[in-house]
Design a protein around this nucleic acid. Sequence first.
DNA 1: CCGAGCCATATTTTCGAAAATCATACCGTT
DNA 2: AACGGTATGATTTTCGAAAATATGGCTCGG
Lengths: 237, 237
Amino acid sequence: MTETMSDSAIRPRKEFGKTIAADITHRLREEIIACGLAPGEPLRFDVLRERFGVSFTTLREALTALTAEGLVDAQEQRGYRVAPVSRQDLVEVTDARVLIEVELIRRAIERGNDDWEIAVISTLHRLKRIEQRDPEHPLRDPEWKIAHRQFHQALVSACGSATLLAIRAELFDRAERYRHLSANFRPRPRDKAGEHQAIMQAAISRNSDLAVQLIETHIRSTADNVATYAAHLLDTE
Amino acid sequence: MTETMSDSAIRPRKEFGKTIAADITHRLREEIIACGLAPGEPLRFDVLRERFGVSFTTLREALTALTAEGLVDAQEQRGYRVAPVSRQDLVEVTDARVLIEVELIRRAIERGNDDWEIAVISTLHRLKRIEQRDPEHPLRDPEWKIAHRQFHQALVSACGSATLLAIRAELFDRAERYRHLSANFRPRPRDKAGEHQAIMQAAISRNSDLAVQLIETHIRSTADNVATYAAHLLDTE
DNA sequence: CCGAGCCATATTTTCGAAAATCATACCGTT
DNA sequence: AACGGTATGATTTTCGAAAATATGGCTCGG
């Protein structure tokens, strides 16, 4: 409010109790997922230092963390680059997601209590509200992205395993990057709203088999879409 | 050759083409898995700096990587500590391992070629040789640990998914720490040699269902053992 | 003209000091 | 004696310089 624009806009502002490194990790992650940093692009320290206004050390810590998440590729003694994309990697991420998400949905439906139901219903509600606002290009709306992420997160949140939830979140991020990759070339989003609605209903009515089937279809058809419309980005070289 | 003993013995000697940070990450990982650094123990920079002879920055990078692997716990602004153990965490790791390893064994049996069979047979052979040497306390023998790890790795290596193999490796490490935790209190190792032999035979003869069942039993019974003999370490506070 | 070896430059990696933050003990007040 | 606030020491976090390593161009010999 009272600060100058130039400073507050450029300088990384860390939230209370958080380290700058954690903040940079978060910002870099978002930028890589959104393909603001292109797959395979070298991540040079000088450039990043300029862009984020932090030191080597802090950047290195962030890049190390993102390397573990599969979003950055470390080439020892030769720096880092954005993790490249490939058809093979897309298939692997999709398969892994199906394997894990299907299991987590089952467990969540089995164990979910009232709070879980409320979380599923309310996150879907918010998602639909945002979609009404701008039904054409949801992926370009940061709010839609967050709401979408939170809905899928809510669905499995009651699974009871923090370990598997962490793995799931990582795979979700990696998949989301592929969605962004094809977003610019996709003619028109298919009926995601309807799919989400159906998944919610199956989950709340504790219809495990149906929910599992819907989720698997949801994940695989999204991946197929990416493979189709981002083909020219996946087959290169 | 020409260097003084004191230096070459204490200083971390990095292998060709590797960074010191990667080396320290590896050494710290091994030490945490072996419970040389006890679960929950604070990881103070001064102490580690003394012990490994490296700087803050390098340590921080290693600790960041291990945090992502679930072996270290980061408390923002309050440093790091060895990831604590708990009965809940043991259950989660075990469940996740069963879910993933069962799937990978299926895929490996389906896709494995001659090289895969050879790898499975030869890694088991080496494991048995080492067991003959010191059948009492295999976990205390670093060579046994490596051979054991390589046998299980070989079993699933042909699954075709680097993504799932990486996740599996991480869970394997976390589980191995629990095995070490109980190793000192376990009366006597059960017949692991027989189990490994049976798993190998089921895999090579492409008997998927049997291999899956044996692997699941292998993983779960190991975890049960830990839960029993390390109970006093899991229930505290 | 081509290729191997070497020098100069660009870039990463590592370091220890300085700044920021947290934990603890102390003091004064109620 | 209990409580709140503050000063002090311990520890983490961040920084930019220095060392180590890779990259690209150049020369020289074949």
